[in-house]
Design a protein around this nucleic acid. Structure first.
Lengths: 221, 221
DNA sequence: ATGCCATATTGTAATTTATACATTTAGTTA
DNA sequence: TAACTAAATGTATAAATTACAATATGGCAT
């Protein structure tokens, strides 16, 4: 039953899937197999089904492309310019996802499809308005790292302060002072010591985990 | 031409229109004249036309309800739960708008329709999932006041520091120290002196305006 | 002219937070 | 046991935040 007699736009969900690979921030892109923009790289996505929520659609797309679930997922922005898709009126609700590099190894090689990880400083020309969308997503990503704890979702449950610092350095593409970084993070009072990791051939580091119920609010850096 | 054979959701734009009236933060609501939720108050909105962008739709709705243009407008979030509208699948892209209290006087009495301003601490039961949406909007509003200069859009071009402080006190519902507030604002280096306002029956205040090209970036408070 | 009223304007000390910067420690490996 | 690797640590300075109260400038009433 249509709620209005007027023609309605189509609705898609596109998802920006970020991870860290080879000490670089990467985003997953797919190669378009059909026109328009056939052969061009694009942000993965698809139509929203009538019986699934937007978030469910994002989760489904994510799973289709990567085989795993996101360690962090949030809605990004809805792009709805009239001519953003040459085929007709298409509104796209975008999400961004973070995937922990550990899981990643399970999958990224498995799928022989047209999906590929791109370091964010080596992005090819993209289809539709996807360059604008990616740019927006990177802004939001950095903002989130600065003011929230999303960064921790890229780490295993137990991690060292050096690992954490590395992630921040990759995302912001700059070095931080080790002493100040540690001081800052520890002063937040959000970490729990988890014992020492002896499996290294140098001074063994302390492992930490995020305290329970610490997921929001806190400001970092 | 449909891009997919599957049934598609409908798309609406809802807009949260905020202003300051009687020293209180107010939001504009409309009384529903049809089922479902007939007689209940709701956030104003309507269907997106096939030939207008989402933002254009928001601007149109805003103008229909208030007769004026927003002093600030931004997309808020897109709500798309499957059962949020009992009539069928409706995705709503929400916007929030700020309207300067000066303009307001021109209009708010003019329109004899079912629209009404509500102080945000006296909101009635709302239709659909609109309570959730309003709550989200208030969070975002406060966040924006804290970290950006949107607050200035509620003031006339020339304003006093007391007026500015008042707006912040209303939005955050708390008092700020006068000396520290002024220190903070002035230290941002974003204000230009505009001479003294003699039309008061007490010590005349300095008028300020926002310097040109200062619209983003800066962090307040 | 004087005193009253209302709001605007101003400063300083104490505390907290941010920044800059180099050495020592604990383990492995040759 | 010497060399290597990454982990852990402290201190002085600067900058930002907080707490707090008296004086200034005009209009208005007498």
């Amino acid at each position: 039953m249509a709620l209005t007699d007027y023609p309605q736009p189509s609705v898609t969900v596109d998802i920006l899937i970020f991870t860290i690979r080879n000490n670089q921030l990467n985003v997953l892109l797919i190669k378009r197999k059909i026109s328009p923009f056939k052969g061009a790289w694009a942000i993965p996505g698809g139509f929203v089904r009538i019986d699934e929520s937007l978030e469910d659609a994002a989760i489904r797309e994510l799973k289709e492309e990567t085989g795993v679930e996101a360690d962090y997922l949030e809605q990004l922005y809805t792009f709805g310019d009239v001519k953003r898709d040459p085929r007709g009126r298409v509104i796209t609700v975008t999400y961004f996802a973070l995937i922990n590099s550990e899981k990643l190894k399970l999958k990224s090689s498995t799928d022989a499809s047209e999906a590929k990880w791109f370091p964010i400083d080596k992005i090819p020309k993209l289809a539709f308005d996807h360059e604008k969308i990616l740019k927006y997503a990177l802004q939001r990503l950095r903002w989130k790292f600065e003011y929230t704890l999303v960064g921790f979702s890229l780490l295993p449950k137990k991690f060292t302060l050096s690992q954490l610092q590395k992630i921040y350095e990759i995302v912001f593409n700059k070095k931080f002072d080790k002493r100040n970084f540690r001081k800052k993070i520890l002063s937040l009072g959000i970490l729990k010591e988890e014992g020492i990791d002896k499996n290294v051939s140098h001074r063994p580091p302390m492992l930490y985990s995020l305290k329970k119920n610490v997921k929001n609010i806190v400001e970092i850096l």
